[in-house]
């Protein structure tokens, strides 16, 4: 469970989050969606401690996020960004194992975990010794996911993880990712700007605008009972894309 209490954030005089109270349920997939600059990525970055709130508090699984707890909380979270954020100087294997080795895992334990994750994410074992520049975009994203899952975190945060992929690869990963999330029963918070993708993953969708939650609920609610005109407008703008995109989607 992730809780925001009275959280506000401005950046260079621009208000990103006016004041937010929000609870994201454990074991569910929550999808944050909205136009660019609506504050959805900032929410994720607040949770992982890359952004500190001006006011209010964030807590993860009941632990208040502060300078003392941030490292422990980060290790209990998996964070995946667009294009994987892999370190180019490390092989796929070393990227995934970096943190585990830092924590002193022995080679056997690291290898066993790598084997499990490669199977889970359907990543070829022989690709583990390649460097990021030698991998395809989809493979990089699978490695990024493996790295996030290495320490078996209870929460996975994904910031537009599929944004940089071409449609075929993207569709394939959407299927795999949902299967993984369902299997692991993790708390998932994903940011996307694609309503179709949101519907595909979501137990619940949060539509944001200017740092506010405009509507919260399943995709059907957003489509059928829009909370305000903006929701209908947002859905309409995405519908065309949804229909075209939908043909590729299983």
């Amino acid at each position: 469970m992730i809780e925001f209490q009275g959280v506000s954030k401005s950046y260079e005089g621009r208000v990103i989050l006016p004041r937010l109270d929000l609870t994201l349920p454990a074991g569910k997939s929550t999808i944050l969606i909205g136009p660019s600059g609506c504050g959805k990525s900032t929410l994720l970055r607040l949770v992982i401690g890359l952004v500190r709130p001006d006011t209010g508090t964030v807590s993860v699984e009941g632990t208040l996020l502060n300078p003392e707890t941030v490292t422990a909380i980060r290790r209990a979270l998996g964070y995946v960004i667009q294009d994987g954020g892999l370190f180019p100087h490390l092989s796929a294997r070393d990227n995934v194992a970096l943190m585990a080795r830092h924590l002193g895992w022995n080679a056997g334990r690291v290898d066993r975990r790598l084997g499990e994750l490669a199977e889970l994410t359907r990543f070829p074992l022989d690709g583990l010794d390649r460097f990021p520049t030698q991998l395809s975009g989809g493979q990089r994203q699978r490695v990024g996911l493996m790295r996030a899952l290495m320490l078996d975190p209870s929460v996975i945060l994904l910031d537009e993880p599929l944004g940089a992929l071409d449609p075929m690869v993207r569709a394939e990963l959407q299927v795999d990712l949902r299967a993984i999330f369902r299997e692991l029963k993790k708390t998932v918070v994903m940011v996307t700007h694609d309503l179709g993708e949101a519907g595909w993953f979501a137990d619940e969708i949060l539509l944001m605008r200017d740092g506010r939650i405009v509507q919260r609920g399943p995709l059907s609610d957003l489509l059928d009972i829009p909370a305000e005109p903006f929701v209908a407008q947002f859905v309409r703008a995405q519908r065309q894309v949804l229909e075209i995109d939908g043909k590729d989607r299983p």
């Binding site: 992982i48 401690g49 890359l50 490292t71 422990a72 980060r74 290790r75 979270l77 964070y79 960004i81 954020g85 892999l86 370190f87 180019p88 970096l98 943190m99 830092h102 790295r147």
Partner: peptide, 13 residues
């Protein structure tokens, strides 16, 4: 910046 943040987000000191 993305790589620096990735390292931070992993929980590396």
């Amino acid at each position: 910046i993305g790589l620096r943040e990735s390292a931070e987000a992993l929980g590396l000191p």
